[in-house]
């Protein structure tokens, strides 16, 4: 059984204006990035995965349970969704209370919730701010609080909507390590993002949506090799990939490390030949 199964799913907010058209894929453990321009249906798709919306046609199975037969609140034990804007969820006066809100809702005891919340705050490096008012923190820190408040629920599936927005270099590095850590712990991490360099460095699989249709689905390297298809969805490969392409390198390079290795080997090849 797959963790997530999406079978021929279509969705429309208003009849006759489909936002998603006949999308099919299945997901298991690992990291997946969903990319596509605004209006391509990314956010709608994750709301469907979370049972906040129900498919107009087709079915979504989470751990074998059809989302049509459950509610978002009930799914909270399995699927955690971090929304784009942290200001849409934060309401407690203390960071720790905010992070404990989800665990308490899904029936954890006070001690359990507290322990999980502290662990989650450690993961996002905000444990020293646990007594502060979230609204005294910066926007990027509040975003990390909202991530912690989902991590504390210890769900098998974690969905992040635009986690790198308003983050600086350190914040991004933190989010990269959170994704790696979750994958290491055997979770499924799904991320909606516009940041292609982040995708190239961090995600094993990439799903490309364009105008409500699933345009590409495969390993990151394979997806970023199809530059022409990406361009039809108004997307560009990561900068490193672009550079390797302009240099006429063979294959698709996704990170600085890969580029450096390739460069050295190609220089050696040249030297061997000459």
């Amino acid at each position: 059984m797959n963790l997530i199964e999406v079978n021929n799913v279509s969705f429309a907010y208003t009849e006759g204006v489909p936002v998603l058209k006949n999308v099919t894929f299945s997901l298991n453990n690992g990291s997946v990035a969903i990319i596509g321009q605004n209006g391509s249906g990314k956010t709608t798709l994750v709301k469907l995965l979370k049972a906040l919306l129900k498919p107009t046609s087709g079915d979504i199975l989470i751990n074998g349970i059809n989302t049509k037969e459950t509610t978002a609140a009930k799914l909270a034990r399995t699927v955690g969704l971090v929304f784009q804007n942290p200001n849409d969820q934060i309401f407690k006066n203390k960071v720790l209370d905010e992070v404990m809100f989800g665990p308490l809702n899904i029936g954890q005891s006070m001690e359990e919730a507290r322990e999980n919340a502290i662990n989650a705050l450690e993961t996002v490096s905000l444990v020293d701010k646990k007594e502060e008012n979230p609204y005294d923190l910066s926007l990027s820190e509040r975003k990390l609080v909202s991530i912690a408040s989902i991590l504390s629920m210890d769900t098998d599936i974690v969905i992040l909507d635009e986690p790198t927005i308003a983050q600086d270099y350190l914040g991004k590095a933190k989010i990269r390590s959170i994704v790696h850590e979750l994958v290491r712990r055997g979770k499924l991490v799904i991320t909606i993002t516009h940041d292609m360099d982040f995708v190239g460095e961090c995600f094993q699989r990439v799903i490309v949506l364009s105008e409500g249709q699933l345009l590409l689905d495969g390993p990151a390297r394979e997806v970023f090799s199809k530059e022409d298809v990406l361009r039809t969805a108004n997307l560009e490969p990561p900068y490193v990939t672009q550079l390797s392409k302009t240099m006429g390198y063979q294959g698709v390079l996704l990170s600085v490390e890969e580029f450096v290795v390739y460069y050295h080997s190609s220089v050696e090849n040249l030297e061997r030949r000459s």
């Binding site: 609140a73 909270a76 969820q89 809702n105 899904i106 989902i150």
Partner: peptide
């Protein structure tokens, strides 16, 4: 905005 807040809190297991 209330709609998105409702979604965010239901996602954290809040019954509305």
């Amino acid at each position: 905005q209330v709609d998105s807040i409702m979604d965010a809190q239901r996602s954290r297991g809040l019954e509305t």
